[in-house]
């Protein structure tokens, strides 16, 4: 192997190794430590001046106590469950909102499509924080939505939406729907219209040809979109802390507060490790789905 090839490989490799992989090792190590009032706020710290004995003492002081604590304290497993529930429900709602949009885009005239695509992508380039913030002014009690609904006489008292889970759902649907629309659109766009025509010729109604032909063929896109929404939604922090209320329990927010408000680094690290373990399953499933799609194309 020549030197140039070696350095080409090793520079990005080492960068990711040190700044991505090693930090996880550190998180895992600290999750086995104990909280202490010191700097840094955990114990034990590795003392290499004592050589092998110091290392052995360090190892023996590590334990899984924090993980036991996570199962014992209601807050954490409730937060995991509630994040899972919110992420599943929000993904389903995002699918319901996004599918008709993607379907409409796929049926639009050819010359409109690049513009429609750009209109879907444009919000993605706009600050996430600002898009979430925009809803604060709309959903509050004196906000735009309540003014509008009361103005046209649908409701007489303002709805309380901001600082509830509903606001979190709306925030997730709004910020993540481009991730759902684009993969679904990509599969629908490639779909051969003559398949539907054949189904109709053979006696299907338009509706049943949608259920029997279009939907099964769009499945890979739907699955990809669902994972692209579900995975980040599970660890979401900004949306629950701006739109959710004090009763909205999401694990990303719990982790953030454990670290910054309680300064309990070992517990925060344990929360992170468990979240990562939960996420491995959908991530692997997502990659399988992507591989299947690639193989189907070839």
């Amino acid at each position: 192997m020549n030197f140039r090839r070696f350095s080409l490989i090793s520079v990005p490799y080492l960068w990711l190794f040190i700044l991505f992989l090693v930090p996880f090792g550190i998180v895992f190590k600290i999750s086995l430590s104990d909280y202490a009032i010191s700097i840094p706020p955990y114990t034990p710290t590795l003392d290499l001046t004592e050589g092998w004995a110091g290392f052995k003492a360090f190892l023996s002081a590590l334990d899984f106590e924090n993980y036991v604590f996570l199962t014992e304290d209601d807050l954490y497993w409730k937060a995991y469950l509630s994040s899972l529930k919110i992420a599943v429900f929000a993904t389903a709602l995002t699918l319901l909102v996004s599918f008709p949009i993607a379907y409409g885009m796929a049926n639009a005239p050819d010359e409109w499509r690049p513009t429609l695509m750009m209109l879907v992508i444009l919000p993605f380039w706009t600050s996430f924080l600002i898009r979430v913030y925009a809803w604060m002014g709309i959903l509050s009690q004196e906000g735009f939505l309540n003014q509008f609904l009361m103005g046209i006489g649908i409701i007489s008292d303002p709805l309380i939406i901001l600082n509830t889970n509903w606001a979190v759902y709306i925030g997730i649907i709004y910020t993540y729907c481009p991730f759902m629309i684009l993969p679904i659109y990509a599969t629908l766009e490639k779909l051969d219209p003559s398949l539907n025509e054949a189904a109709v010729d053979l006696g299907c109604s338009r509706t049943s040809s949608f259920w029997l032909v279009t939907l099964p063929l769009a499945k890979p896109g739907v699955i990809a979109g669902c994972f692209l929404v579900f995975i980040p939604a599970l660890g979401e922090f900004v949306i629950p802390s701006l739109l959710g209320g004090s009763r909205t329990l999401m694990i990303g927010k719990v982790l953030y507060e454990e670290f910054f408000a309680n300064r309990d680094w070992p517990v925060a690290s344990a929360v992170a490790v468990v979240l990562l373990l939960i996420l491995i399953i959908p991530i692997v499933m997502y990659q399988r789905n992507q591989q299947k799609m690639m193989e189907a194309e070839q």
Binding site: P23, F24, V27, I30, P232, G235, G252, A272, L275, L279
Partner: peptide, 15 residues
């Protein structure tokens, strides 16, 4: 690409 930001942030800070 799929890592929750809270985990990336926490791990880098600890590093």
């Amino acid at each position: 690409l799929v890592m929750p930001e809270v985990i990336t942030g926490l791990s880098l800070l600890l590093l």
